[in-house]
């Protein structure tokens, strides 16, 4: 990426940081302080509501010993990967279409891509039940056409969760990929064509590599957001899809085990940090953030 430093305007200000005070204090009280409390809590061992030890790794040991948590984490990562991949496969062509189309068409596409973000998650999920459910639109139509007697299982499984989430998060892939595509000089692709590259090879050798910054950004964003998936799996997955967030929620609300809940949450944070590090490694190969 190009060095995007802007000349700072000559504002007569001796304390420019003053403007950051409101947001910085919000950040401290809503993020930094809770995080410290969380980490501290994750090392506390309690039995029956009484603190036994203020520094113990028991909570972390239970994360690895207890197969449920580990399996939930792996399943969450699997879901996140599937969702991010689907977003990319469906979103990339949309971004390419937006790049090629004129102003009005581009706005229309943008509206459709962003509109799920403007809708309440509950409304969205209930609407999907009406479409994907046993007596939903698709199954009724399918049966009406005589294509099947058995209802298609479109929800209360991983597929339902993936459909429900891809629908919203598509925007998080489309927007960065679109931005990356818009930064490509069309003359570069035309050069490749005039040098003998077919349309497919122009895409493969030029367009795709040059849009990788957007691809990586979009994929990472969706993946990381998915690691915290909670509501959609509850509604669209029924009790058949278990994510790590659901486990943590259960620990807090029904087992009142704040210590283990905190430790699991810290583990999720570490996983996200690991994912961001991986994404950076990929990004550097394509000249992002250098």
């Amino acid at each position: 990426m190009k060095d995007g430093t802007l000349e700072s305007p000559e504002i007569d200000s001796k304390r420019p940081w003053l403007l950051l005070v409101p947001s910085a204090s919000l950040y401290v009280f809503t993020f930094a302080v809770p995080l410290i409390v969380l980490v501290a809590a994750s090392f506390e061992k309690t039995t029956g509501g009484v603190t036994v030890s203020s520094f113990s790794t028991d909570n972390y040991q239970s994360f690895f010993a207890d197969g449920v948590a580990l399996r939930a984490v792996l399943h969450t990562l699997y879901l996140s990967f599937a969702i991010a991949t689907c977003c990319l496969l469906f979103g990339y062509p949309v971004a390419m279409t937006m790049r090629r189309s004129g102003g009005r068409m581009r706005l229309l596409l943008l509206f459709f891509v962003v509109s799920p973000l403007l809708t309440s998650v509950i409304v969205r999920n209930v609407a999907w039940i009406l479409v994907l459910g046993r007596e939903g639109l698709i199954n009724v139509a399918w049966r009406g056409l005589g294509l099947t007697t058995e209802p298609l299982r479109l929800m209360y499984n991983d597929l339902g969760v993936v459909i429900g989430v891809v629908h919203v998060y598509l925007a998080f892939v489309v927007l960065p990929v679109f931005a990356s595509l818009m930064a490509i000089d069309p003359a570069v692709e035309e050069s490749a064509a005039s040098l003998g590259a077919t349309r497919v090879r122009v895409f493969w050798h030029v367009t795709l590599p040059l849009s990788m910054p957007g691809v990586i950004a979009g994929f990472t964003l969706v993946f990381v957001l998915c690691v915290g998936l909670y509501l959609t799996p509850v509604v669209m997955g029924g009790n058949f899809v278990v994510t790590i967030s659901m486990i943590i929620g259960d620990l807090v609300r029904t087992q009142f085990d704040m210590g283990r809940a905190s430790a699991f949450a810290v583990m999720v944070l570490l996983i996200v940090a690991g994912l961001l590090w991986l994404s950076r490694q990929f990004g550097q190969r394509y000249g992002v953030g250098t």
């Binding site: 003359a187 035309e190 050069s191 003998g196």
Partner: peptide, 20 residues
């Protein structure tokens, strides 16, 4: 005939090199 079969060499004002 599509561009990639025409065997022409092209040089643009913007250089249009492959930046990667």
């Amino acid at each position: 005939m599509p561009a990639h079969l025409r065997n022409v060499g092209l040089v643009f004002q913007s250089y249009a090199l492959f930046p990667h």
